[in-house]
Amino acid sequence: MSDDVRVIVITSGKGGVGKTTTTANVGMALAAHGEKVALMDADIGLRNLDLALGLENRIVYDVIDVVEGRARLKQALIRDKRMQNLAMLPAAQTRDKSAVTSTQMKQVVDDLKAEGFTFILIDCPAGIEQGFKNATAGATEAIVVTNPEMASVRDADRIIGLLEAEGLKDPMLIVNRIRVKMVKSQDMLSVEDVQEVLGNSVKLLGVVPDDNSIITSTNRGEPVALLKESISGQAYRNVAQRLLGQQVPFLDLDERNGLFDRFKKLFTSK
């Protein structure tokens, strides 16, 4: 039964590309589909997933408390009040990555499986050291998040190699913070460019536009996936649907042209 549980690590290599935001939003969107979702913050010492979800005031125990036997898993899991079938397991803030081993992290994942979750998403820390190894230990699938920007694509390529070495083949790719106008003016890498660099083994799972509403919603502790009218929220909801095996076309982000662009088009089109 527990073999049906999807355990997905969300990783990137480089920091600041949107792993935590992706974890929070894809988790919310999956939960909205009725999936029982556990989100695990594997960034020991740099806890952030709680902020993305707006759950920072409800933390009593963390993953290290569970590993070291001070709390049971059920006590440490925080149920989301907006989305009853979503729970978060916080990272410890006062310890560091050496506080746990891969074996212990894998045990936590196994215990989460036994709790009846259908999806376990693991928010991986940046880097390729112990934290990465811990976060990938219990996973059977991987999502690589990248920005259309050189350093993050290069790091994504490294991470894909390391994931394969850990037995996580054919990772899924989310290109985050794309700016269609810049791509069209030949100033930014396109999604296709990123795919070409990363190669055929990577399957495109989602394209998320650069969107101010991510900042405002994160500031409020409300993942954009909960906001019906948000385009990035829609992009994350589409990712969730694709994870559930549904065929969803990629968003036409070009439609997001502002009034000025539409005017310009009027005058420049023949």
Partner: peptide, 19 residues
Amino acid sequence: QTPRACAKERLLGVVIEDR
């Protein structure tokens, strides 16, 4: 070259070296 083409060419170069 455009910044986009330049980025892609440079990336293909470093990625192949890394691999």
